[in-house]
Write a protein that binds this DNA or RNA. Structure first.
Lengths: 143, 143
DNA sequence: CCGGTTTATTAGCTAGGCTAACGATTGTGA
DNA sequence: TCACAATCGTTAGCCTAGCTAATAAACCGG
């Protein structure tokens, strides 16, 4: 039943699908006009509770200077708070603010984001496939 | 067996997975130092044979000015050729050059791109899931 | 206490998106 | 026929999001 899937072809297919989907998702700002990148960082930070910029950069697979900019934008909007490390004067502690957590809660409540709407149109079985795929992709991205 | 999948949660999972994977794939330039975006445009153009900038922009789900820049970068590298429309003086015809087609052929031959390597490590069954997922995602992105 | 390491930031570059505005060309309707 | 609207590509200007290199401050080991 399951036909053999050559990794190279699958890579091309996946790359194209992800590129296009990413573009689509990126255009539709779901909550509070935040970009996908910002939502991802905010989510990671909230899950972890509190992180240093370096740790958050590692979690997001991004270089520290990139994270500096992302955090600055999130801080401007009052979604992330920056406080000094208690013992190490170099480090900074990042945490989500109440407003940041509210944005995430709102996102979780959102049933009508562009992507969610599209997914709702799919048959249940395809959503199941995407769920398993999402887990596999997370694993691949972490590798 | 298959548990119900709420679209909103699935949207969050997929969004995160795709964001992270996209970042990873974007960092690893597979062939000729081209970005994923450039490869995607070049592929679309090659598949179609010849397109106007507007048509290519539509195919890539991008605004015309964005395509202007992308095409300019591809032209600089000699991968895309621009020629005047035979009857309509406003339009331009884009086509891949021999070099452009060679890059794509090389890409298709490439068995060792970062993503292909990661996919090769997966069990066959997971690759099958990803294949089906890629098809579904293409459909979603096109919608 | 001094030299090396780590942390975060700044500076400067690139790609890749967008909207608004514009010039050239084409099509059209009176 | 000819003025006017529509279309096409581009330019200009803005933003996000990545990167590397360099730097200042702080920490730590000997």
């Amino acid at each position: 039943m399951a036909k053999r899937v050559p990794p190279a072809q699958l890579a091309t297919l996946l790359r194209d699908a992800i590129t296009r989907l990413n573009r689509r998702v990126r255009q539709a700002r779901p909550v509070g006009d935040l970009t996908v990148t910002q939502l991802s960082a905010l989510t990671s930070l909230d899950l972890a509770g509190a992180l240093t910029p370096r740790e958050l950069a590692d979690a997001e697979r991004v270089q520290p200077p990139t994270m500096t900019g992302m955090v600055a934008r999130l801080e401007e909007r009052g979604l992330v708070q920056r406080s000094p490390h208690p013992t190490d004067g170099r480090q900074v502690i990042l945490a989500t603010t109440e407003a940041g957590r509210e944005v995430l809660a709102q996102l979780r409540r959102t049933r009508d984001s562009w992507l969610a709407l599209r997914l709702a149109e799919l048959p249940e079985e395809e959503r199941g496939t995407l769920l398993r795929a999402a887990e596999i992709l997370q694993k691949v991205a972490r590798a």
